[in-house]
């Protein structure tokens, strides 16, 4: 029994570590490809990024080239990176010259703040809606949830954010549209991301509730003479939790993708915003750092859901 749990624990950690390793290699390889095929003069673009296009000349570009060692063959740059990556040194930003690790660490707090607020909001909206519709399938709450989730599917994060921005900020003047620093600024990005996630959350909760309520063991418990609320507490909650947690992986993808989009839209200074910025400037070390961080974050959260699953389901997570 306990040894089986330990084996499951070891299996989860091993699989996820391997996944993290593969994804790191994958990102490094993609970034290598990116460097290889980038056309034009990178030094010129970086200089322009620093000083503005109007103030760049060949001398400024040469200075940048010298400073960053861009004249080396690209495979050498990549080999250097890979070595650094193994020691968790992510290099320096080609644009600002600052250490990538320090820059990302600076952005991470904002991203976590946004993600946490959004997940809380998504659960706050999605759980009650899903429960109400799962317990009375076909009822008005179910129809409402269905309509709500379809509407949100057709309204991707950046459209939803755009509409909220135009509605709450421009038309009504309730919230500032972009920027970071004041407490009120979190409202729009978190609302955008949280509402976007809540549609799928509600559907997943709804389907899990329905599956559990229709399960043999649930009916059998009812037939033992237990009151409906006791059956729900004793046999419903935990089993619903098992399915909802099992679906968390899908939600996490939406969360990470949403973070990138919403941060860029509202200029929220998180990792996603930094990533899009880096892509715009082809700042490869920064691209690699941000992507790696988001991927590791994703793997880490998936590991957490696996462990949660192991904790609440005695059978442990299904073999992938």
């Amino acid at each position: 029994m306990d040894s089986a749990r330990q084996r499951a624990l070891a299996r989860i950690c091993g699989q996820r570590l391997l996944q993290a390793a593969i994804v790191s290699l994958l990102v490094a390889a993609l970034c290598f490809l990116l460097v290889q095929q980038l056309p034009g003069d990178m030094a010129f673009r970086i200089a322009a990024g620093r000083y503005g296009y109007d103030y760049v000349d060949a001398a400024a570009a040469d200075a940048v080239r010298q400073e960053l060692g861009l004249a080396r063959p690209s495979w050498q740059q990549f080999a250097g990176w890979l070595g650094q990556l193994a020691q968790l040194q992510l290099g320096q930003s080609l644009v600002t010259g600052g250490a990538v690790l320090a820059e990302i660490a600076h952005h991470l707090g904002a991203t976590v703040q946004l993600a946490a607020a959004s997940v809380a909001l998504a659960l706050g909206v999605g759980l009650p809606l899903g429960l109400a519709s799962g317990l009375a399938p076909g009822g008005w709450a179910d129809r409402l949830t269905l309509g709500y989730s379809v509407l949100l599917r057709a309204l991707p994060p950046f459209l939803l954010g755009l509409m909220l921005m135009l509605g709450l900020s421009v038309q009504l003047g309730w919230a500032p549209a972009a920027g970071h620093g004041e407490g009120g600024n979190l409202l729009l990005p978190a609302l955008t991301l949280g509402l976007g996630l809540s549609g799928l959350t509600a559907r997943i909760v709804r389907d899990s509730v329905l599956a559990v309520v229709q399960a043999d063991y649930y009916r059998f418990a009812r037939s033992k003479g237990l009151a409906p609320w006791r059956v729900f507490l004793r046999h419903g909650l935990r089993n619903i939790g098992v399915t909802v947690v099992a679906y968390a992986g899908v939600q996490l993808i939406l969360l990470i993708e949403g973070v990138v989009v919403v941060e860029s839209l509202f200029a929220w200074p998180g990792v996603g915003h930094a990533l899009v910025h880096a892509i715009f400037w082809r700042d490869v070390p920064m691209i690699q750092g941000c992507t790696l961080l988001l991927a590791w974050l994703f793997v880490l959260m998936n590991t957490a859901t696996d462990l949660l699953c192991l904790a609440i389901d005695p059978r442990g997570p299904a073999e992938s």
Binding site: A215, Y217, F220, H235, N239
Partner: peptide, 13 residues
Amino acid sequence: LPQEPVTALDPTM
């Protein structure tokens, strides 16, 4: 008496 005893028992209890 449940028809399929295996599915009539709560897997998490």
